Computed example of a mutant assay.
Amino acid sequence: MGAAARALKVMGFDDLVLVEPRWDNVLRREETIQRASGANDVLENCRVVATLDEALDGVDHLCATAMTPRDFGPPTQSPRVHFEQLLKRPTARGDNGAQLVQPTGVAFLFGSERFGMRNDDVYKANVCLSIPTNPHFGSLNLAAAVQLVAYDWRLAVDQWVVDTPAPQNQVLADSQTVQAMLNHVEQALVAISFLDPHAPKKLMPRLNQLMSRAQPSMEEVHILRGMAKAMLQTAAKATD
């Protein structure tokens, strides 16, 4: 339960309801608090009720979860497909021409870790969500299922932008500077006997093409020139 609370908080949700939990003190158990890993506010605000009907107060669209489709009951869809359809409902129209209303209270129903979902509970749902998994091994623990559904719901209702470092304003080296660096590198390659000046083949033209594609900055050119300088110094010591 602690891991499920953590999964909710990571995705920006905090409305957790437990229906007739196995342990009355489940929210205060040491393991629960440890696995919540800082999501204590979700545990503190969690509601504990005796029946599913109590938990569904104010809910007008219930999504149950199940690993495999059932022969009878609500339609089965993957979370992303259903969420996309659900959030497009205000612009859709029913068979009688009436506009379909987007639900205001959406809830997600998960079964217990040990026994899963009861059929009678699934029948109360508008849809049964099935997370796409390996067809030969699709068993997810409760917290993992909560995390995946919460992630897809977050993407559907309000995608968060990933913070990325602002690009640094690097000064690109001009062609004259790059050519001077390549001349320096050529001297170093000759000094360490990597390049035969009498049979250079296409090494330097290819390095020219490499630098043209790379568009090195001034700092990167300085690094390469420093390497060439060190190579020349090492070669000079070897000949002393």
Rank of each mutant, 00 (worst) to 15 (best):
L232Y: 06
R114S: 15
D24H: 13
N45G: 13
A180Y: 00
V178K: 03
D57N: 12
A156H: 02
P200D: 05
V10G: 05
E186F: 00
D41A: 06
M204V: 15
A144Q: 15
V59W: 01
A156P: 02
P21I: 10
E20D: 11
P74Q: 07
G38M: 09
T91R: 12
F137C: 09
L62M: 08
L155S: 06
D121N: 13
T68S: 08
A191F: 02
A125F: 06
D240Y: 00
M67R: 11
N141W: 02
A228H: 11
R6I: 12
D60S: 06
R206P: 02
M67H: 02
H61P: 09
L43T: 08
A7G: 04
D53K: 14
G105R: 14
V42C: 09
L140R: 04
E54A: 10
H198D: 09
R80Y: 03
V127A: 10
I131A: 06
T32Q: 04
L56N: 07
S112V: 01
A166V: 13
L86S: 10
L172Q: 08
D152Y: 06
W160M: 08
M211L: 09
A156C: 03
A125W: 07
E84N: 09
A3F: 00
N126D: 15
D14I: 06
M231H: 14
V10P: 05
S193N: 13
L195N: 04
W160G: 12
G38R: 10
A7S: 11
C63I: 05
V178N: 00
Q233V: 14
P167W: 01
V48G: 01
V19N: 02
G105Y: 02
R47P: 04
L87S: 09
A180W: 02
V127S: 07
Q209Y: 04
Q85T: 13
S37Y: 11
A144Y: 03
R80Q: 13
V161W: 00
P90M: 08
R213N: 08
N96Y: 08
N208F: 00
L142H: 01
L155T: 11
G111K: 08
E54W: 04
R206K: 11
Y151M: 14
H184R: 06
A230G: 11
R47F: 04
T177W: 01
D71C: 03
W23Q: 14
I131K: 12
V59N: 05
V161T: 06
A188S: 09
D41S: 05
S139I: 12
M67C: 08
V190D: 00
P75M: 10
V122T: 08
D53H: 08
D71P: 07
V127G: 07
Q147A: 15
G226W: 15
R28N: 14
S112K: 09
V122H: 03
M204H: 04
P21D: 03
S217V: 11
F194K: 09
F83R: 10
H198W: 01
E44K: 10
P135R: 12
M204T: 10
